[in-house]
Structures are given as structure tokens and as C-alpha cells.
Simulated assay, not measured.
Amino acid sequence: MLRFALVCQLLAGLAFATNCSAEEPTQLPLILAHRGGAYEFEENTMEGFEACYERGIRGFETDIRMTKDGVLVLLHDDSLDRTHNASGPVEERTADELKGVRTNKGQAFLLLEDYLKYFQNKPGVYLELEMKTSNKNLYPDARIAEYCDKLYAMASKYKPANSDYLFTSFDERPLVVMRTLDANWPIAIIASQPLSLEFIERANRLHATHIACQISGTSRKWVQEAQKLGYKINGWPGHGVEDYHLAIGLGLDVACTDIPLAIQRFKEKLPARNPDTPE
């Protein structure tokens, strides 16, 4: 029944669209600094987040993991090997053991609380907090509830007014738990695939508000149809300025990029679309 209802809605939208001229987006996609600008700075470091904010970026994405003793930290990979002067999963270390860990260029290992404290007095930011729990060896079902409880409590504590904080994941398990903790908090399902009817159905089943899809292969038609159903669409990955060109053409709401400052410089050269509409 759900699929039938969605198909009917989408077909109705398509029929309407064929009788109307295509509308231009009223604003450009929000620049989302992926891991704080992973190609311009060391990823998931305060250096990157601070530099991007100071230069006008207001969208940030980061990755959340939990230590052996239940402390939330920022790290993308399943191990420390690639980005830090240590090895193995952060889930097998205590927070105290991480105090001496540094990035490859000598920056301190970043705790989620320190990250959120930085944005606490900065209203108007958009933060995507990706829950890196897909590895079931590191995050068995029994550990998901503790992880979600702590993340929800901390995000709620530090979130400033007039800001958008999203819980996002490839893993459906934490999304389901987050929806039970708060029926209204924005959540996004991520998948390594273009936007499609099946992807929209999955978002609907999870009661998601946002969809993060691969920009390559996604069509403007599906972006428009998903937006008509109320979803905000984030396209990834963004490695070059040409990816932001594509995000504009697709009419995305958010463009995830590893080069946020380069995109910001490009965006500043574009003519304003609607100066009365905030990003």
C-alpha cells in the first residue's frame, strides 16, 4: 500500500510537471563542509571546522563514534591507522588512552563535546552528525541504544537556537532509535546510490526528513519529486567545482563537498538569486 501511495503521488507530480515550465531554484545549494573540508584541511579537526566557519561556511558534516568507555568522538574510519599516529579501532580504546593520540600533522584527537561546544554560540549553522555504526562487530545491536542516547542528549544540550542539526547514517538501526527518542528531530538516510523511487520509499519507512544520495546518476526529475513529498536532498560526494555545478543543475538543497572554501569562492562570483531568502 505504501508503494502504491507513493507511486500515485509521484505520478501526479510528474503529470503536473509536464504541464508547467521548469522552475529555477530560488537559492543555491547549501555548501556542506564534508569532514570539515577533507581536501583542504586535515579531516575532522578543529582547524578545518574553525577555518571554514570564519570564512563564511555554515554547513558542516562530521562522523561520530564511541570509545570503549562510552565517550563520543570524531573519526570516519573503522581504525585510526590512516589519519592518526595510532592504530586499531577507536571503539577498543578509552577516552583517556586517546589523550596522547594526534593526527598525522600533530593536531589533537577531537571529542564530540568539544566540537559541539564550538558551535554552541553560533546560531544559524547546519550540522550533519553521521552515526558511524554500520560495522556490527564494533556496534552490535546491544550497543546502539547507548550510543543514540548519548548522542541525542549531547546534541540537545549544545544545539543553539535557529540551527539545524541532523542525525544521519547508512545504518538504519540508529535512525530507528533516534526516531523513537524524538519524533520531530531531522534525520537523513544515506546510501551509495542515486535517488530513486526505492530510495524515497526507504526514507518514508524510516520517517526520515532528508535523503543523502550519490550525485552521480541522480536526475533532476527525482530530486523534484522527492522535494514535492517534503524531503530535503543532499548530493555527495563533491570533490571538484564541477560537482557543485551539477548540484545547482539538479536543484539540490545541500551539496556535500571536500573543498568548501573553493566552492565558496565560486559561489560568491555567481549572481544572487533571491537575496531575501536565507541559505
Rank of each mutant, 00 (worst) to 15 (best):
V7D: 02
C8L: 14
Q9W: 14
N19Q: 11
C20Q: 15
S21C: 10
T26A: 13
Q27E: 13
L30Q: 05
I31D: 05
L32T: 11
L32D: 06
L32K: 03
L32I: 14
L32A: 06
A33T: 06
A33W: 09
R35M: 09
G36S: 07
G36I: 12
F41E: 03
F41I: 09
F41N: 00
E43I: 11
M46N: 02
C52E: 01
C52L: 02
Y53D: 01
R55W: 11
I57R: 04
R58F: 15
F60P: 06
F60V: 11
E61H: 03
I64M: 04
D69C: 07
D69V: 09
G70L: 05
V73G: 02
L74H: 00
L75F: 03
L75E: 00
H76F: 11
D78V: 08
S79Y: 14
L80H: 01
H84G: 06
N85I: 10
A86G: 02
G88W: 08
E91G: 09
E91D: 03
E92W: 15
D96M: 09
K99V: 06
G100C: 10
N104E: 13
Q107E: 10
F109Q: 00
L111K: 04
L112P: 02
L112D: 02
L112H: 03
E113N: 08
Y115R: 00
Y115N: 00
Y115T: 01
K117M: 09
K117C: 04
K117D: 04
F119E: 03
Q120D: 11
Q120K: 15
P123F: 15
P123Y: 13
G124A: 11
L129W: 07
S134R: 04
S134A: 10
N135G: 04
L138C: 06
L138G: 03
Y139F: 13
Y139M: 07
P140T: 01
A145L: 12
D149L: 15
